[in-house]
Amino acid sequence: MNELGERIRKLREESGLSKAELARRVGVSDVTISYWENGTIKRVGHSRLEPLAKALRCSIGHLLGNALSDCGSTSAVPMSLPLYPLTTSPETVGIGAAPMSHFPMGFIDNQLIKKDDYLLTPQHPGHFDFCPQGTLMLARNCSRFDGNGLYLVERNDRLGIKRIEQDFDMFLNIFGEIDAAEPEERMHGDGIVFHAAIPAIWSMKVMNF
């Protein structure tokens, strides 16, 4: 039985990667990927194991059949990310929220993803600064300010995406437009609820589905 080849194929498909894309990431031809998967080549060279495991979001041990490897642990990064619809309602996020689908990891730079990250995409009705309709946002749960950047926040029972920067006086400056020079508001943090940091935003047109 070609267990290694079957494992490569399964992990590749779960990651949403084509043979050509996986080949590009590993530095081999797509023919080589086919040979690995169908068992024509039964071993993967040592120099290819690390980039192959990295591309498939797995440890080398798991790739080679070690059931105790970290790919089966609770700390492993998933093969896909839950995608939630973003509306202005706070019920969009939190324990009771349900994802609209799961997004394959093959379309996203693996280096960006951490455990428990998820995706948001704006829905009608409602306008969101920094992320118009047709964008994907990488979201990472947080309950407080954790450095300058974009955040999903709740203010006056409404969700919004804001750029938040802390000044030398420890006030939080809240910006609502991409190129705004002056903040909408300046506060110590009272009256704002942090739901998630937004480390990355993509246009779905650029991602070439």
Rank of each mutant, 00 (worst) to 15 (best):
V26N: 03
K205G: 06
E21D: 13
F107I: 06
G106C: 10
D169Q: 14
M100R: 11
D129K: 08
I108M: 08
G45C: 08
Q166I: 05
I178C: 06
P51C: 10
P183F: 11
S18M: 10
I60K: 12
L150Q: 01
M1Y: 10
A67K: 13
R186A: 07
V28L: 04
M204R: 12
E3M: 15
L11Y: 06
G106K: 07
V26C: 07
N148H: 10
R12F: 02
G147L: 02
I113G: 09
G27S: 03
S59H: 01
S89W: 05
N2M: 12
L63T: 00
P122T: 10
A55H: 01
D157P: 09
R163D: 00
S143L: 11
E177D: 13
L120G: 02
L11G: 01
G106E: 07
T121D: 05
F130V: 01
P104D: 05
N173H: 13
F175V: 07
D70V: 04
E165K: 09
M79T: 12
L136Y: 02
Y151G: 04
L138F: 06
T121S: 13
D117C: 06
L83E: 07
T74L: 14
G149S: 03
L152F: 12
I201Y: 03
P104V: 03
N141Y: 11
V193K: 11
L83M: 08
A67M: 12
A20V: 12
V206E: 15
D157K: 15
R7P: 02
R25D: 00
